[in-house]
């Protein structure tokens, strides 16, 4: 038997990271200021929601992406002015770099002008998504 010190260091460091991971993943953070404009061409010509668009980025090796897609599909099912779009991050690398998407799933909440008002890294919670959608005011042009 050698020393237990490296084992202790690894477990302490990864526990710290794990606690941060648990608390940060899925939380919707509001965003103001620097706005990255997203055009219809960025999302392969699909149309945005008139009030809110939930723009989800997914990847192949991502378990919570499937659950997130199901959740957001369910939430937006009976909302006429809210659209959920699920993009394959790997197929949209230019947009991923522009919006600084680092992990999947990442969901952006866009208002009626396609300005990012919030984003959730990781699988978001239902009540938080519902609240965030309700907080976005309709755009009157």
């Amino acid at each position: 038997m050698k020393t237990f010190l490296p084992l202790a260091i690894v477990l302490v460091l990864s526990s710290g990271y794990g606690v941060w991971y648990r608390t940060s993943r899925g939380r919707i953070k509001g965003k103001s200021g620097a706005m990255a404009l997203i055009s219809s061409a960025d999302i392969d010509g699909s149309s945005f929601g008139s009030r809110v668009t939930l723009l989800q980025f997914s990847s192949a090796f991502c378990s919570p992406c499937r659950a997130t897609r199901a959740l957001l599909t369910d939430i937006t099912a009976d909302m006429a002015d809210v659209v959920h779009i699920d993009l394959d991050a790997e197929g949209h690398l230019e947009l991923v770099r522009r919006l600084d998407i680092r992990s999947t799933p990442t969901t952006l909440i866009l208002d009626g002008n396609q300005v990012e008002v919030g984003r959730a890294v990781g699988a978001p919670k239902r009540d938080q998504v519902t609240k965030a959608i309700a907080a976005v005011a309709a755009v009157h042009n």
Partner: peptide, 11 residues
Amino acid sequence: MAIINQAGAVA
């Protein structure tokens, strides 16, 4: 309302 799933490689 509209659900657009373009992530063909994902699902």
